[in-house]
Amino acid sequence: MTPDEYCQQKAARSGSSFYYSFLFLPPEQRRAITALYAFCREVDDVVDECQDPQIAATKLAWWRQELSRVYAGQPQHPVTQALQAVSREFDLPEEQLQEIIDGMEMDLQQSRYLDFKALSLYCYRVAGVVGLLAAGIFGFQDRRTQKYAHDLGLAFQLTNIIRDVGEDARMGRIYLPIDELQRFEVTAADILNARHTDNFERLMAFQIERAESYYTQALEALPSADRRAQRPGLVMAAIYRTLLDEIKADRCRVLTQRTSLTPVRKLWIAWRTWVRG
């Protein structure tokens, strides 16, 4: 199996909305974004699948060294071998890839966030940076597109947090800011014990409204000259906003279930958004 085939399998198996967003890209861009996505999955899996935080930290340290080997021309892992092949062509800075690992390390160091400012740093590292790297792969002429990419990455991560409240709670994590829990009179115990209350619904409606504001902010920042090049991000935004609509229609029952869209529906949204440009 070649490094590119490994990355392709990693992306396809995930069933992520991200995968559907780059189906229609030209081969070289698809190869680059697939390698980036596979890298994100590898380091994210370290945190999600390792029960022992010390083992997870050791594995993330190995990935840090492996990124250095990419830029020294000596990568060992199929994903980093694929990244090396595209890193120069698409100017992927090592510093930004390392920041993604910084975000993953935050998951090992804390399971609560005091306020949205603290959560924003986490979202930037695990998703905003990915948005910036992806925008570079897709190509842009206007620097304002970087603002779009940053905000869109945050919107995606906020959507993930909303969708995964129950799943994260079962791993002992609550990403909803503590001060917002207090404002809506929802306790950590309510979330950890999957107690769906009217207050919880109001809290989640607030989270959805903020995520939607980031989508709006991002799309308003995207210069028309770069809209066509940035279609993969627009595809993912369309899929994720549909997901938010489904969660809202289901009264935010995210504590006991994980709302998702079928592959056929994702593909339909992706094709429709791509054609519209």
Rank of each mutant, 00 (worst) to 15 (best):
F24C: 09
L25C: 13
L25I: 09
P27I: 12
P27G: 02
Q29C: 01
R30Y: 06
T34Q: 02
T34N: 01
A35R: 03
A35M: 10
Y37V: 04
C40D: 09
C40M: 11
R41P: 13
R41S: 12
V43C: 00
V43T: 10
D44R: 00
V46H: 01
V46A: 06
V47W: 00
D48G: 08
Q51T: 13
D52V: 06
P53Q: 12
A56L: 03
A56E: 06
A57N: 12
A57F: 06
L60M: 01
W63H: 08
W63C: 11
W63G: 06
R64G: 10
E66A: 00
S68D: 15
V70I: 15
V70K: 03
A72V: 10
A72Q: 15
Q74S: 15
P75V: 01
P75L: 01
Q76R: 12
H77Y: 05
P78A: 07
P78V: 11
A82V: 12
L83G: 09
Q84A: 15
A85E: 14
A85H: 13
V86G: 01
V86Y: 01
V86F: 01
S87E: 14
S87Y: 11
R88T: 15
E89T: 14
E89W: 04
F90D: 07
D91E: 11
L92H: 01
L92N: 07
L92T: 03
E94V: 07
E95Q: 12
E95L: 11
Q96T: 13
Q96D: 13
L97C: 13
L97R: 02
E99T: 13
E99R: 09
I100P: 06
I100C: 06
I101Y: 07
I101M: 05
D102N: 14
G103F: 00
D107N: 09
L108G: 12
L108C: 10
Q109A: 13
Q110K: 15
Q110I: 14
S111A: 09
S111G: 04
R112D: 11
R112P: 12
R112F: 07
L114A: 14
D115P: 08
D115E: 06
F116N: 04
F116W: 11
K117G: 15
A118E: 15
A118L: 14
L119Q: 02
L119D: 08
S120H: 14
Y122S: 10
V126I: 13
V129I: 15
V130K: 00
L132V: 15
L132S: 05
L133W: 10
L133R: 09
A135T: 11
G136Q: 10
F140G: 02
Q141L: 03
D142S: 03
T145E: 03
H150I: 09
H150F: 14
